[in-house]
Structures are given as structure tokens and as C-alpha cells.
Design a protein around this nucleic acid. Structure first.
Lengths: 146, 146
DNA sequence: TTTGGTTAGTTGTTTAACTAACTATATGCC
DNA sequence: GGCATATAGTTAGTTAAACAACTAACCAAA
């Protein structure tokens, strides 16, 4: 049974995800305005490290839904900014464990405030139960395509 | 009143839109498998032209939520692929009207079948009313941040 | 008619995504 | 021990996004 409730005209924006783009752009602007010298992509990597420091690049790939070359470059750029450090693992010398610097740790508080602020602005006037349903649908979509 | 029903751990994936990324990646794979030599971004431009041929680059910006440089480059690449043609307007010589070639017109049917197929796969087992709510929430999010 | 502001589009630069091809290390099997 | 295979990460090349600075054309008011 086809589950496609999209009229033709709506197909494009669901596929290309204009809402999440808009959220990312808004957050980026807040970062810039606060002189937080970070891209959203760099922030998404730091975000995982704030949750757990010292994980491997492969674990960052899984956590951020990126492939290995993307993480290599993001870690390159974060290292140039002196926000993370690669430390090769002693147990398995193929692996780099990625560690936050003190400077990166200091950015957590400010950036998380801006991220939550952005979500509040995005979800203004949306009832809580509808946000919950939306989250569930997006999760199922992700799982369906994984 | 804060509307933020996100536990911290979910914040990132809502902001960066892993679901829409997954949809785009799936559709791109279908294009490649079908030897449709198109990126999703190029397809999103053609999609607008299939709806209405001969619109300006500015109208493409609005329709695809992109800025002008992005559309300039996408049209550049589509022109290289001989899928569109720039025709400068006679009424206003600043404007380029973008027209599909015959080759591009031939791609509509096949690519739309793949796009709808992708959406059906993405939304499998999601009840219609929940899809409807999800669409509404994403639209509100977009409008809130516009 | 010219000056100032606006609109349409282009170019340059940086960051990132994706694919494919690659190196180096680890592991498991004979 | 030696070989095949898998895993971790890097490099190269193309496409695209975001931003700033730019050119060209249009338009309106002095």
C-alpha cells in the first residue's frame, strides 16, 4: 500500500529538507553574531566530544552520520583551530583518539545556549505533542533508509 | 513559553536533519543506479523547470531556497550538461530566463518515478495522519525562521 | 540628465560532502 | 610464520553552500 501522501508540489521540499537547512542557517548566524568562530559542521563534531571525549574518528563518523573523509577534514580543520587533538591509540595504532582542548571545552556552554535558543525559535507555536510526532516520523524515515 | 521538547541528545540530529540527508542520499543512489547523470541539487532545479519552464534565476533562487551564487553555479553545470539554456530576457536585459532542453525534458518521467519511490520507502509504515502532522511542523519551522 | 539606490547575475574564497583509490595496521586461518 | 581479508584513516577530484565583493542594467527623483 503506497504511503505517499505528498502532492507533487511538496515532494521537493521534503526531500531536500528546507526546514533543517533553515535551522542550521539560523544557528550559524547566531554563532557568527556571538563571534563563535565555528561552522555548524565543526560544532556537530565538538557536540559529540562534549558528550564523550577521546573517541575515535570512526565513532565520530557513526555519531555524526558522516563518512570517513568528511571526518578527516573536519578534524583537520578543528586541529588547525586548536580545538581538538589527534592522539593515536596505543592498543590499535590504526586509530586516532580525538580529544578536546581546554579552549574547546570553554565553548560548550555558550554554543549550547545558542543551539537551544535556535530550536525554541524554530518550534515556537508548535504544540509539544506535534513536535513529538514529527520527531518520531523523522526517526522512522531515517531507520527505513539506513 | 519554551517549546523545546528535545532532550540534549536529540538536539543535534534535529538541527542537522539526518532524515532529509538520508532521503537525498537514497535518491542519489537511485539516480546513479539508473545512470541518470544528475546530482540531487541539479535535479531540484530541473524539478522547478518541469513545473514551469523559462523562469529567471532569481525565481529559481526563491523556489529552491538557494542564494544567487548557488543558482549561478548550478545553472553553469546544467548548461555544461546541455540540460538547460540561458536566454537573456528582452524586457529586462539583466535577467536570464532558463529553458529546458529536449534532453532534460526526457529525464522528467524517470526521475520523478525514482523520487516518489524514494519517498514511499522513506515513509513506509508511517501512518498518513502522522506524515501530515510532520509536514505541518516542518512548514511552521521553516516559516518561523524565514 | 545625472545621481543614487535597487535588482539580476557573476566571481573568488573557504568549508564541506561524496566517491574512489590509496596506505598502514590488525586479525584470522592454513 | 605467511597470506588473505578487514578495518582506520588519508588523499585526490568533483560538486555544492555560504559569504563578500563585484558588474551591468534598470529606475526614480532632483
Amino acid at each position: 500500500m503506497p504511503n505517499n501522501q505528498f502532492r507533487k508540489g511538496e515532494l521537493y521540499s521534503f526531500i531536500t529538507g528546507k526546514a533543517s537547512t533553515a535551522i542550521a542557517r539560523r544557528l550559524q548566524k547566531k554563532f557568527n553574531a556571538a563571534s563563535l568562530n565555528l561552522t555548524i559542521e565543526q560544532w556537530s563534531v565538538l557536540y559529540q566530544l562534549w558528550k564523550q571525549d577521546g573517541i575515535s574518528q570512526q565513532e565520530l563518523c557513526n555519531a555524526t552520520f558522516r563518512d570517513k573523509p568528511s571526518i578527516t577534514r573536519l578534524v583537520d580543520n578543528l586541529e588547525k583551530l586548536k580545538l581538538v587533538k589527534r592522539v593515536s591509540s596505543k592498543e590499535d595504532r590504526r586509530m586516532n583518539m580525538i580529544f578536546l582542548t581546554n579552549e574547546a571545552r570553554k565553548m560548550q556552554e555558550a554554543s549550547m545556549v545558542l543551539a537551544e535558543e535556535t530550536l525554541n525559535e524554530a518550534l515556537e507555536s508548535v504544540p509539544a505533542d506535534q513536535v513529538e510526532i514529527c520527531k518520531q516520523v523523522l526517526q522512522i524515515v531515517y531507520d527505513n533508509l539506513k
